[in-house]
């Protein structure tokens, strides 16, 4: 398995402003590789370098074994690109715009654009500048996917899409992946990447902080847990749960018969369940591991000191990127008993 995208020591500065400080990563064939990071971390700059829209200050890029700067149109024919900010202000219909992009990219199978537009519920006969943001985004996606390129480079692909369309987009990604297409996408919303990608690079201020698989990220992440038990006083319950690995009690509340514990948990779930099994459970809430929190730790400002959500919130608040990371979290699986 050769790497489809291979980036080594990529640096980019605009004048005296260093945007990328020498990043390295590789994307395997058929992989969905996500890069996440706050706005301004260098995600878009990286993608523009891959497409030869801007030129690296140093380092090397190989896509399908070729240097984008030298390979030119021949290589870009095999790439589908969705820019992070899509401007479609022409006074032409979506259909004609797509026909134009088809004429300057790889061959498009007849009917393919309509097929994609239908999936996204997009009307191709409307003038592009009258389209809503979401519909423009769909047009951008159709444009990127329609020639079935070997490599897809998608900057914030689900921005502006409603949840149903985000789901359709993920289905499209999986199909592309099964066909052997390689996907490199970015987001500042972790939930988006965590649902779509196999591996994630975390980019912060022009450096890759970590590349890890989503499952590894998930393993290191903390679940929020709330346990309500009847008939066991608070201190006794705390004692019972003390030896469960990975469990950190945050707060114990007692209201009459009912004792409620809020805690965070990381690692294997079975020991916890085993410890809870003999108890008179009134309620049990286990939230999906919060990757945002573990990513925030990697962003640097602490956050995983056992205080869970508060830590994450303060970390985000302190760095002023609360809005960047606190996007829609998709479906938060809750198991209640």
């Amino acid at each position: 398995m050769g790497q489809v995208i291979e980036v080594k020591g990529l640096r980019k500065s605009f004048g005296r402003r260093d945007v990328l400080h020498g990043i390295d990563f590789g994307v395997e064939r058929g992989e969905v590789f996500g890069v996440i990071g706050p706005n301004g971390a260098g995600k878009t700059t990286t993608m523009r370098c891959l497409l030869d829209i801007i030129r690296p200050s140093a380092g090397s890029i190989r896509i399908l074994g070729e240097n984008p700067g030298a390979a030119g149109p021949k290589l870009r024919r095999k790439i589908g690109y969705l820019p992070g900010e899509l401007f479609l202000e022409q006074r032409i219909t979506g259909r004609r715009l797509l026909a134009h992009y088809a004429a300057i990219s790889g061959a498009v199978r007849p009917g393919r654009a309509d097929e994609l537009a239908e999936r996204f519920n997009l009307d191709l006969d409307r003038h592009t500048r009258k389209l809503s943001k979401g519909n423009k985004q769909k047009l951008g996606l159709v444009q990127a996917f329609m020639h079935d390129p070997e490599v897809l480079i998608l900057d914030e692909p689900t921005s502006g899409l409603d949840p149903l369309m985000q789901q359709e987009f993920r289905a499209l990604l999986r199909e592309a992946q099964q066909r052997g297409q390689t996907i490199f996408l970015s987001s500042h919303v972790l939930s988006e990447v965590q649902q779509a990608a196999d591996r994630v690079a975390i980019l912060r201020d022009g450096d890759i902080v970590q590349v890890s698989s989503v499952s590894a990220l998930r393993e290191g992440a903390h679940r929020q847990i709330r346990i309500a038990v009847t008939g066991v006083p608070g201190p006794e319950l705390e004692l019972l749960l003390r030896d469960v690995p990975g469990l950190h009690t945050i707060e114990v509340q007692t209201a009459g018969e009912l004792t409620e514990i809020s805690a965070t948990h990381e690692g294997a779930i079975r020991p916890l369940i085993r410890a809870l099994a003999p108890l008179q459970l009134a309620d049990l809430v286990i939230e999906e591991p919060d990757l945002e929190e573990s990513v925030l730790t990697l962003y640097g400002n602490g956050g995983n000191d056992g205080t869970g959500g508060t830590g994450a919130a303060s970390a985000a608040g302190a760095s002023g990127r609360r809005g960047d990371v606190a996007g829609p979290r998709g479906f938060s699986e809750r198991s209640r008993s």
Partner: peptide
């Protein structure tokens, strides 16, 4: 940007 990302010089 989008035009240049296609197969044109």
């Amino acid at each position: 940007e989008l035009t240049l990302a296609h197969a044109v010089t």
